[in-house]
Design a protein around this nucleic acid. Structure first.
Lengths: 235, 235
DNA sequence: TAGATTGTTAATCGATTAACAATC
DNA sequence: TAGATTGTTAATCGATTAACAATC
């Protein structure tokens, strides 16, 4: 059984971390359908993944299954939830009450995962004082003091790229420990601060390239003899 | 020099693909400041990356530099742009005219990268017929026919999770080749279709976990002797 | 017991980092 | 020529996949 004094951090691979919520959602679906137990091969089939990878992922967050049976859905859900920090209440502030910021403020589902945005900040006098989805918009200059006084650790940046670094600096000054950054900008923050970049343009670039390749390949195939039909490739 | 008949596809690593736009933006900044030439170590310094990785990335898209000098900024920008497909006009349709969809319709910058959303689709009678950022909202059931007639290859999904699979099916029926999916759902589409998932909850999960670890670690450190000050770890 | 599936170790694969000769 | 930086090959690192004994 577990040793109380952990000598070293568990060290979870980044790709695993990004897959865990997918399992969580899938297990909720199973629970909803009244399914109590599931095997890695079933998960792999439904989620188009290698079963061994699934097992490794679950193992890495210390979930235990029963040989010959599988994993208990009712254990998995709270297990993953706890690991991902869905229990504790994460209060957050959001900077940038534009269209994207406003859209995020309206995401009711965040609360399910312990995230609660308690205030929004903007530099436009037109927006300051407004209330968006029952969240008050304050002037951006009050951010550091607010964060510090309310002891808030999570900041969301939805300001334009030009303003992102300044806002990040204000967050750091306010004692923010983790930043969810939607601005297309490379933020410079102290090493201690966790930054999760959500740069749409990076994704668009990848998608754009792959689409171009796909269309280009098929044009080429069409012009010649079409031998590469489908472009299927076994790995 | 280049051989005209490429025997095999170049094969770009996924991580590289996701870094290319960052270089592109950085090089645009250099050009704006009148800098004509740049070395990988300078790039690495400014972007907090290993210089060798930068060189590998540029090499993988066949950019050539000059030993002892560096890379030409005026060659890099169109080079990366062409590779990422920023030239060709990518017409797209968007399904789901909610707050996120509307926010995306307002992104003027997409045009810089060759992306043009030409129509939006929704199932709500309240929204159909409206015009958002000069883009008309049509009924979702007209999507397949519209896509096929207009020969559109890119679809953006911003509908709720429950509707995502249905919309994806409609897009596939309409001849869409690539889907930019913002719905928190695992889409099932034919292998030929490129899907880029933009699931906020996956990212939130990773961020949430890392924040929890960070706060947890520091609490533990505070309660005992604080030896792990800063949690610095040399790789 | 037989069948299924986990837990765990080994093999493979791919990406990053290091080393160094070639070139400007 | 000396200094800097690329191009390219080798070493390392980490994640995924395969193999198989242990367990229900």
């Amino acid at each position: 059984m577990g040793d109380i004094s952990q000598p070293a951090a568990p060290r979870i691979p980044e790709p695993t971390l990004h897959r865990l919520h997918g399992y969580y959602r899938y297990f909720q679906g199973l629970e909803h359908r009244g399914i109590a137990s599931v095997s890695c091969s079933a998960i792999g089939r439904d989620l188009s993944m290698d079963p061994t990878l699934v097992r490794k992922d679950l193992e890495s967050i210390a979930m235990a299954g029963r040989p010959g049976v599988g994993f208990s859905v009712t254990e998995l859900i709270p297990g993953i939830g706890a690991f991902l920090g869905y229990n504790g209440s994460k209060r957050a502030i959001l900077a940038g009450a534009g269209s994207l910021g406003t859209a995020l403020l309206g995401y009711r589902k965040f609360a399910e995962f312990g995230l609660r945005v308690v205030a929004a900040f903007d530099n436009s006098p037109l927006r300051v004082g407004e209330s968006l989805h029952e969240i008050e918009v304050r002037h951006i200059n009050g951010l550091p003091e607010f964060a510090r006084e309310m002891d808030i650790h999570l900041g969301i940046i939805t300001v334009p790229a030009e303003a992102a670094q300044r806002v990040a600096d204000q967050m750091v000054r306010g004692g923010i420990r983790a930043i969810w950054n939607f601005a297309p900008a490379n933020l410079r923050v102290p090493e201690k601060i966790v930054v999760q970049n959500e740069d749409l343009y990076n994704s668009l670039a990848a998608l754009s390239h792959r689409l171009a390749v796909k269309l280009g390949e098929e044009i080429r195939g069409g012009k010649s003899n079409g031998v590469y039909a489908g472009g299927a490739r076994i790995r």
